[in-house]
Each structure stands twice: as structure tokens, then as C-alpha cells.
Amino acid sequence: MKLVLATALSLLAAPVMAQDSILNVSYDIARELFVEINPAFAAKWKADTGRDVSIDQSHAGSSRQARAILEGLPADVVTFNQVTDIDVLAEGGLLADDWREKFPNEASPYYSLPAFLVREGNPKNIDDWDDLTAEGVQVVFPNPKTSGNGRYTYLAAYAWALNTGLDDAGAQDFVKKLFANVPVFDTGGRAATTTFAENGIGDVLVTFEAETAGIAQQYADQGFVRVTPPTSLLAEFPVAVVDEVAEQKGTTEVATAYLDFLYSPEAQEILAKRSFRVHDKAAIEAHEFPEVNLLTVENLLGGWEGVAANHLAEGGILDRVFVNQ
């Protein structure tokens, strides 16, 4: 009966899916970005091939999204904010292990960094990472267990501590103090933004630089101040075609073209306009980006493999500083 039902239902849904159609499963705060990029790609695809393409979007914390794909969410492409979340898909056999070699810049068309957004006039004088652990400062960022955004914040704080000369124990203490100042852990970056901007909770929101720009603009009346710390962590935004799904749906070509498009001058300009840092010279020069010293996962944290093994694995450092506090 179920089979009949499922078939009947898929027939019912069929007219909605016309021509080329791909699903881009992405991280939480990328919604507005892809709302702008998708029509630009659709126009280009139409010009190149004469075919129409519709691009569906799904947004949530990127680890949550990876889990959903593992459970069968039919994503043709993923545009995530963390290497580990695509590695998980590779482990699940949905795409090849060497996915980082399929697109330029290790499959990361743009990058950003965890930055701060503080309330009008910066009353708590928050300029750098150690200001976040001061007594009486409330910090808002999403759950590092479900959100790549939150995980970057955690890793950035940890890397910052190591960079100041602290050892692992010292860095853990620092992160513990930071977590103790967090009143709410939302599951995605956007929910954290709502908590900070809409519900008025916390003194500082830590999220991607690009998101801080977007919120400052959207809530201009609240006078939020963007603070880019002198030192932060390079946040890459890796992309991949989910081979298994794309092959089954016959969308490999359009999916690949879609991701290639993210590297084109046109898309890079859209990205830079939205305060993502890009590799395209013209785009980066057309917009202003504050100077920042970027630490990397490779240099300080033993690469993504080291991060996965030491920090994110069950019972790892994140578990110890996060869950047990």
C-alpha cells in the first residue's frame, strides 16, 4: 500500500519539477546569498545551453544538513562551511574522497572568518577574543555540535589561545570560560542571529564576517557595531557535487556547472558585495575588507583530520569543554 502511495505521490509532485532541477543543500546563513546567485546562474545556463534550470535551496546548520543527506535528502550539490561535513559524506560513500581536488582553491570558492557584532557604542569594549571571556559579557553563537559556524567560533577561540602562546590545557581553559559566557546555543547561525538581534540577548554575536555585515545592514536602526578581531581563523566554504545523487538524477553536468559558476567573476562580485572574501582580484578590490591576521586549521590545529580526531570525535576536547560545563 505504501508503495502505491509513494508512487501516486511522486506522480503528484512530478509537474512541479520541470526541466533541469537541482537541490543545493547549504549552511544556515547562506539563504540570501543563494537567492541572489541562483537566478544569475539560471540566466547563464540558459544562455549556454538553452535549457531552463530551477535551483531549490535547503538551509540549516551544516552538520545537520550532512546528516540529512546521509539519511537520503537528495542533494545534488552541497555548499557547506566546513570540510568535515563533506568528509562525512565521502565516508558515507556519497562522493569521492578526493572531492577537494575537483574545484579550484581546494574546492572553496570563497572564505570568511569568525567576527564580532556588538551592541550600539560597543559598551563592553569588545575588540579581541579575550574580551569575550570577561566577567559579565554574554556571548551568542550557535551550537558547535550542529553548526559549522559555531564550530569555527570554537576553533578560532582555541587557535587564538594557542597563538598567544598558551598550551593545550590553557587553550581548553580559555574555551571553557568562553562557553560559560554563552546563554543560548541555537542549532544554526540564523537562529543565533535572531536571538541576538530580535530577542535582544547577549552583548556580542560571533558569526561569519559576512553575516555581521548583513545583520548590521538589516538592523540599521539598532546601531550594531561590526568588530573584526585583529586575529581570527580562516573559514573555508567548501563545495562538492554529491556524485551518487547527481548520477542517479542525471544532473552531474548542471551541478558541476553550478559550482564552477561560483568561481566566475559575476558570482565572485556578488559574494564580495555580501562581504565574503573571494579570490577574484577585481571583486576584492571593489569592496573594502579590514586587515586581519588569519590563522589556519592546518597550521595550528593539525589539519581537519587532527580537528576531527582530537576535537570533534566523541569524548574529544569539544565534548569535554561543551557538554560537561
Binding site: 546528516r67 561543551f322 560545563q325
Partner: peptide, 18 residues
């Protein structure tokens, strides 16, 4: 969803899933 303070059990189940 502040762990240990305002996190209900069914939400924790969902978070574990995620």
C-alpha cells in the same frame, strides 16, 4: 536551548540526531 538549563528532553533527542 541552553544545555543544562532550558533544554527539554525531546529537543535534546533532536540535537543528538543532528
Amino acid at each position: 536551548n541552553l544545555p543544562m538549563k532550558t533544554e527539554i528532553a525531546s529537543l535534546l533527542a533532536v540535537i543528538r540526531l543532528e
